[in-house]
């Protein structure tokens, strides 16, 4: 068993008076794919944003490669540079072309030369099936294409792990599979990742473990097959029966 790339222990967070995370723990080992599911408002997006320090939390601790996210002394930009993140609403930079979106952080954070960064970006665009779109602007792309560029942008930093925050929730149904295919491909190549998603088909096919969250708690965290065949908690049974009905 290799050391955890991401380790969260007893994470608690309040938004003002609202207690949104009530002691969440999760451990993600190298090469592991963990899906977090659960009803909306359960805190899963907040939890995943705590993992790279985009959301502050008040109690508990999160270690990324052994470095504590919550310590004031931690160099968060350096830590985040090693963890890729993909957002529900893509968040491509609208004033920059596809290739500029991908090369921006490598050039300014990793201090790569433009040529080097562009070579890397083109290779990644081929990998996500968008080799011909390098000069396009985000507004000229479909949602599925934008999300694939966003994945390429995150991969350009050569991260040790990837966080996906509902990567297909903002997509039209016919575009979901093209994005899930890319994520599934990454999983198959051994990328360490945490994926917040409602796509149970994807979870079943790609995840090593499934964590179920409800009302700020991780109620279950089990190997994928076990989770689907025999969910323990009543809440996850109900959730599964609702979401798998169709």
């Amino acid at each position: 068993m290799s050391a955890a790339v991401i380790l969260a222990e007893g994470v608690e967070k309040w938004f003002g008076a609202a207690h949104v995370l009530k002691g969440c723990s999760l451990s993600v080992s190298r090469g592991e794919v963990v899906v977090i599911c659960g009803p909306s408002g359960s805190g899963k997006s907040t939890f995943i944003k705590c993992m790279n320090g985009l959301e502050p939390f008040q109690r508990g601790r999160i270690l990324v490669e052994g470095v504590s996210v919550g310590e004031p002394a931690t160099d968060l930009p350096k830590l985040r540079a090693r963890i890729g993140m993909v957002f529900q609403h893509f968040e491509l930079y609208p004033h920059k072309s596809v290739i500029e979106n991908i090369t921006l952080a490598p050039m300014h954070v990793l201090k790569r030369s433009r040529g080097e960064a562009e070579d890397g970006a083109r290779a990644l665009l081929r990998r996500v099936g968008l080799a011909d779109k390098d000069r396009a602007f985000p507004s000229e792309l479909s949602g599925g294409q934008q999300q694939r560029v966003a994945i390429a942008r995150a991969l350009a930093m050569e991260p040790v792990a990837m966080l996906f925050d509902e990567p297909t929730s903002a997509l039209d149904p016919e575009m979901i599979s093209e994005v899930l295919d890319v994520i599934g491909q990454l999983a198959a190549e051994g990328m360490t990742m945490v994926v917040v998603t409602h796509e149970m088909g994807f979870a079943r096919a790609a995840a090593d473990r499934v964590a179920f969250m409800d009302a700020g708690r991780v109620l279950e965290d089990r190997p994928t097959a076990e989770f689907f065949e025999n969910p323990e908690a009543g809440r996850s049974k109900m959730f599964l029966s609702k979401i798998l009905r169709h």
Partner: peptide, 20 residues
């Protein structure tokens, strides 16, 4: 989300403001 995406990629707060 633009600021978050820029910071998630490893930019400092000022870099995220200046570049994005």
């Amino acid at each position: 989300g633009q600021l978050l995406a820029a910071k998630a990629s490893g930019m400092t707060h000022l870099q995220a403001l200046r570049l994005v």
